[in-house]
Simulated scan of single mutants.
Amino acid sequence: MSIEYVRFQSTMSDERGQFKGVFGLVNNLARNGRLTAEQDRFRSENNAWYDAAYTDPSTVDPSVYDPAVNPGATAWFKPSASHLIERVAGYLEILSAHDVDCHAVKSTDPGHVIYEDDVQVVVLPHTR
């Protein structure tokens, strides 16, 4: 049986042709000063919760998101990460309030796995 991974990402690619993930999208809004105080509080508290709840792959392998080493690397949740996926709704609400489109993408084969733990994989997307 295949595992179906899920990723929450922008519906439009950036200047490098990549689709930014939900956390990056909200963090960009914060960096640009576009969040309300309540939205920024949610982001800060939940980012801290995520940092405590699961491993940041770059702390295990600093090159995992290095664009020179792993161009286009993206993180995907495993189905076992339901406790992590549940909190994404608040991030999606923030994006919606700022008219930033973000959707869930599901795949049984999102790419070549370069990092894996119990709740996520980081992959290099398949070339077309």
Rank of each mutant, 00 (worst) to 15 (best):
S2Y: 05
E4T: 15
R7S: 01
F8Y: 08
S10L: 00
T11P: 03
M12I: 12
S13W: 09
R16K: 13
K20V: 11
G24S: 10
L25R: 08
V26G: 02
N27E: 14
R31D: 07
R31S: 12
L35W: 10
T36Q: 06
E38R: 14
Q39C: 02
D40C: 07
R41L: 12
R41W: 08
R41E: 13
F42M: 03
N46G: 02
N46K: 11
A52N: 05
T55S: 06
T55D: 09
D56W: 02
P57Q: 02
P57M: 06
P57C: 11
P57D: 02
S58Y: 10
T59M: 09
D61W: 03
P62W: 03
Y65C: 01
Y65G: 00
Y65K: 06
V69T: 08
F77S: 05
P79C: 09
A81P: 05
I85Y: 06
V88N: 06
A89R: 03
G90T: 12
Y91P: 00
Y91Q: 04
E93I: 11
L95F: 05
H98Q: 11
D99Q: 13
V100P: 01
D101G: 10
C102A: 13
H103Y: 08
K106H: 15
S107L: 05
S107A: 06
D109I: 12
H112R: 14
Y115M: 08
E116Q: 13
E116V: 14
D118C: 13
V119M: 13
V119D: 10
V119F: 14
V122H: 04
V123M: 02
V123W: 02
L124H: 02
L124P: 13
P125M: 13
H126M: 10
T127I: 15
